[in-house]
Design a protein around this nucleic acid. Structure first.
Length: 592
RNA sequence: GGUUCCGUAGCUCAGCUGGAUAGAGCAACUGCCUUCUAAGCAGUAGGUCUCAGGUUCGAAUCCUGACGGAAUCACCA
């Protein structure tokens, strides 16, 4: 049993024994730094009812916990705050317990499957900064849920068909001159993206021309020849036109090749890929079913709708009058398919918050349809990554390309590392690997340390930091620890036996406490789907350790016991940092 | 206009199931490398927690309103 639980139980008992108050939950908070003590219990709430002074109540409870537990060494009462100090023996017990737990931080298996769908790119343009946040977030949440004992399926629903793909295809047909990724020396996704931009350029000219002829903006957009051609192409694609399908296949293959390369650099992976070209017809049956059961209704023109007025929402179209699907139709069908494939109890959709409304509607529809999995659906909605100039806009050329950014990060890492002269004794290969590790560590940490729900700012003019509250700071701490452990190995220091070192330094207590908090943080992060909690934790732990590193000597410790203990502590911190960073998808180097 | 989210140090962010004097990092300034990695450590300075009310022993945190910003309200995905 951990210290906090013992304290809570004891305070509960004290309230009952001394004041006949039964309190179901006892909330403890960390004692403010300026006061003596570790945990603080606030007694103000009882003052009125008990008609006793806060000090009186505090002292009574304090005395009770001192004499009825072994974990409390002493206490003090300031105003209405009962500050409790913990005995070093209790900290040592806690540490010995956690360091001998081989699966520390891995929560008990839940025998429950959860799907995390993330990434979900369009195959008409390369990935950008927004996708990086999405991918890192999705991957990290999957790792966190895995540590929480779930069986996790990482899924990617690729949007590989539709009018937007036809735009790239059409532009390629017209202006491509059989260019290939090889001949253009471009990644496939970038090449296809180039033609998407190309389409837009010519399309705009056409629209302007039509507007000059007096058409309204809307009409001009609809009647521009290029748009009409693209729509015809989509129709041909749906009819299985050989030429169109072949072109689609070729260009999609290029894109996938490019994406896979980017995914590899990002360090993310998937257990299941769904392609919209295979699923876009799904959902029509669901519409039939919903019509039959009266969940949906049909208008005179034949279009099918759902009325969500009773849920405080509007009516929503689920099938066009010509019988073709809309976005939400496919999502209904795909939800069924996913459930059929994996039977998961939870299904997370990692999608930007601009789609909040869409998912609210989707989940309400699934509920109305009586889907057994509807309750477990959750939209993990994250905020946009803004630039100082505002939102990224591809038309204005303000998109930060994922491949470019990752490359720049690596260049910065190389530069910094070389400046600091940190690569003595590294082979070229090892050095390159270190640059990547640091670059991705900095980038991932930067994007994950912020609460996912909040929009965040990225300033391309200032490169992402490698100092302070950053990935490399934590990676550096790990490398330092590895260096300590290597030296300890050389000295043959026993790192398994519980040492007899008993009078702990303040920093050492702080670190043991931080370590003991790890499983709880994993649980919190899993419940809130928030890698930011893990990032913050890893940073705090690293910071505490660096303080120890600076303030206390390890190999010149005051006693052999102290040395042995500190090496053990270092090992535990290193392992925990490694685990925490792994939950963020960040690797830690053994030297840097 | 309706709905939802946001507003904390010059900048980027924590803190938000109500608790003590508001927490980090960056940027600025001061110290610390002949002993375990200075991508580090210690310190100084920097705040009307957007504003106004309310709830209470106590509010950055909860409620109401105002102001400012964003997203969404497509037979696009």
């Amino acid at each position: 049993m951990n210290i906090e639980k013992i304290l809570q139980d004891s305070i509960q008992a004290a309230l009952l024994a001394e004041f006949e108050v039964s309190e179901p939950t006892i909330a403890l908070q960390p004692t403010r730094k300026d006061f003596e003590g570790f945990y603080t219990f606030v007694v103000f709430p009882y003052v009125k009812a008990l008609r006793k002074s806060p000090v009186e109540i505090g002292n009574a409870i304090g005395n009770y916990v001192v004499s009825n537990t072994t974990v409390v060494s002493t206490f003090n009462v300031v105003q209405g705050f009962l500050n409790i100090s913990i005995a070093d023996t209790a900290w040592k017990d806690t540490f010995n317990h956690l360091k001998s737990d081989a699966s520390f931080g891995k929560l008990p298996t839940k025998d429950e499957t959860v799907m995390v769908e993330y990434s979900s790119p369009n195959t008409n343009k390369p990935l950008h900064l927004g996708h990086l946040r999405n991918n890192f977030l999705g991957y990290s949440v999957a790792q966190i849920l895995d540590a929480n004992g779930y069986n996790v399926i990482k899924a990617n629903l690729v949007n590989d068909r539709g009018i937007h793909i036809c735009k790239s295809m059409l532009a390629y047909q017209k202006f491509g001159q059989n260019e290939t990724p090889a001949s253009a020396d471009m990644k496939g996704d970038h090449l296809v993206g180039k033609y998407y931009v190309e389409f837009d350029k010519h399309y705009k000219v056409e629209v302007e021309a039509l507007k000059a002829e007096g058409l309204s903006e809307d009409d001009a957009k609809k009647q521009a020849p290029l748009m009409k051609e693209a729509q015809e192409m989509l129709l041909k694609w749906e009819q299985g036109d050989e030429e169109v399908v072949a072109l689609w296949q070729k260009m999609n293959d290029w894109v996938f090749e490019g994406f896979n390369q980017t995914y590899e650099t990002m360090g993310v992976s998937f257990d299941k890929i769904y392609k919209e070209s295979n699923t876009y017809l799904l959902g029509k049956e669901t519409v039939e079913e919903g019509l039959a059961s009266g969940v949906f209704f049909q208008k005179e023109d034949g279009s099918v709708w759902i009325d969500l007025a009773d849920e405080g929402l509007d009516q929503k179209l689920v099938l066009r009058k010509d019988g073709t699907s809309v976005y939400i139709t496919q999502d209904m069908g795909t939800a069924d398919l996913k459930y059929k494939d994996f039977g998961m109890s939870k299904s997370l959709y990692v999608v930007g918050n601009e789609q909040d409304y869409h998912f609210e509607v989707l989940f309400k529809i699934l509920k109305k349809l009586g889907r057994p999995y509807a309750e477990g659906c959750y939209h993990l909605s994250y905020g946009m990554v803004d630039l100082p100039s505002g939102k990224m806009k591809s038309r204005e050329g303000t998109v930060v390309d994922a491949d470019d950014l990752m490359q720049e990060m690596k260049d910065t890492a190389r530069e910094r590392t070389n400046e600091l002269g940190k690569i003595d004794g590294f082979t070229t290969e090892e050095a390159e690997e270190l640059y990547s590790t640091l670059a991705m560590g900095a980038l991932k940490y930067f994007l994950l340390k912020v609460d996912p729900k909040k929009r965040m700012l990225f300033n391309p003019a200032e490169s992402i930091d490698f100092q302070g509250n950053t990935g490399p700071f934590i990676q550096y701490t790990h490398a330092r620890i590895c260096s300590i452990l290597k030296k300890a190995e050389g000295l043959n220091i026993n790192i398994e036996d519980a040492s007899t070192y008993t009078s702990l330094h303040e920093v050492e207590r702080e670190i043991i406490f931080a370590l003991s908090e790890y499983p709880r943080k994993v649980a919190d992060a899993g419940r809130e789907y928030s890698p930011a909690l893990i990032a913050q934790y890893a940073y705090d732990l690293a910071k505490s350790y660096n303080r120890l590193f600076a303030e206390l000597s390890i190999f010149n410790a005051e006693s052999p016991e102290a040395m042995q203990f500190r090496v053990q502590l270092s090992k535990a911190v290193g392992e925990t940092i490694k685990k925490a960073m792994a939950l963020l998808g960040i690797k830690v180097p053994t030297r840097m």
